[in-house]
């Protein structure tokens, strides 16, 4: 029997990956977690074992606004991203020459670099020279040219729209593939059973793609939480912090104000929130991914 040497070989083979995960994921996470419990003054560490960073965070009048904006960003972004992705994916799943071409084309926003996307949209949405605002104005739809990124009431949702433009294509493609793999016989059986198009979608397609749907939702949520370049380049959190979200605020706190401690505390809050949301979501959807993974 050489099963035990086989096992050691297996451990040895995964060692590089384990080491990399330890070094680049667990390590920094640990660092941030300990840093959040450390008093930092002007970039200097002054004593471990304090909740002062969290107290400061709770007392920060900005933090509530950041939380609200982050909720719009993550929850609004994820829900809209998956919903539009599902709609577009359903459309792309139809067999025709047009959709075959579109399936390739739709990945374009996905392959553009973040910076290019952000700059292009920033320019198109600009308050004076933006092509979108001026088009709306010259078409007579608005009185004056709208400054999408300059209006405190619009800025957050404008960011979400750009976010969806950027993240939705992959979601749509994944869901398109999932929809196309729904067995045709099931669709036909449901037609025989008397289901109309909506009922076929609701009772046959959706349950069949539930696993993919859960997966893309979780993945989108994580992507969107981690997305930094897009909002930072487009608004930098402005105007007057009305588009400040967790990732930009953490960046500002650490690299502009050098409040490492508070920034770390915020990172921890961010991580815990994300984990709770994902765990909750997976729990609510446990049936779909349990059956999906089994089959």
């Amino acid at each position: 029997m050489n099963t035990s040497s086989d096992r050691w070989l297996a451990y040895f083979m995964i060692l590089p990956v384990v080491a990399a995960v330890l070094a680049f994921v667990i390590g920094p996470t640990w660092d941030v977690a300990t840093l959040s419990l450390t008093q930092v003054v002007m970039g200097q560490e002054r004593g471990f074992g304090t909740l002062n960073n969290f107290r400061a965070l709770a007392a920060d009048p900005m933090f509530a606004l950041v939380l609200k904006n982050t909720a719009i960003w993550i929850l609004g972004g994820t829900i809209l991203c998956v919903m539009t992705g599902l709609a577009v994916g359903t459309f792309l799943a139809i067999d025709s020459k047009m959709t075959t071409g579109l399936r390739a084309l739709i990945l374009l926003p996905w392959v553009l670099p973040d910076v290019v996307t952000a700059m292009a949209w920033k320019w198109m949405l600009h308050g004076q020279v933006g092509v979108i605002g001026s088009t709306l104005q010259s078409a007579g739809l608005t009185e004056q040219q709208i400054s999408f990124l300059g209006d405190p009431d619009l800025v957050m949702w404008t960011l979400v729209v750009v976010l969806i433009w950027r993240k939705m294509p992959l979601v749509a493609l994944i869901l398109c593939a999932a929809i196309r793999s729904v067995p045709n016989e099931q669709i036909e059986a449901s037609r025989m059973d008397g289901a109309n198009a909506f009922e076929r979608f609701r009772f046959v397609v959706i349950p069949n793609i539930a696993f993919s749907l859960t997966a893309v939702t979780v993945i989108s949520m994580i992507w969107i939480t981690a997305e930094f370049a897009l909002p930072w380049i487009m608004t930098g959190g402005g105007p007057a912090n009305t588009s400040q979200i967790m990732s930009t605020y953490i960046y500002q706190q650490s690299f502009e104000f050098f409040s490492w401690g508070v920034a770390s505390a915020m990172s921890v809050v961010n991580l815990v929130m994300l984990m709770v949301i994902v765990a909750l979501y997976l729990y609510v959807n446990r049936k779909s991914w349990a059956t999906g993974a089994a089959s």
């Binding site: 067995p183 016989e185 099931q186 036909e188 059986a189 449901s190 025989m192 009772f203 046959v204 349950p207 069949n208 539930a210 059956t291 089959s295």
Partner: peptide, 11 residues
């Protein structure tokens, strides 16, 4: 109609 692959709804 009864289909060759049964076409039952797995969920």
């Amino acid at each position: 109609m009864v289909f060759q692959n049964y076409a039952l709804y797995p969920h």
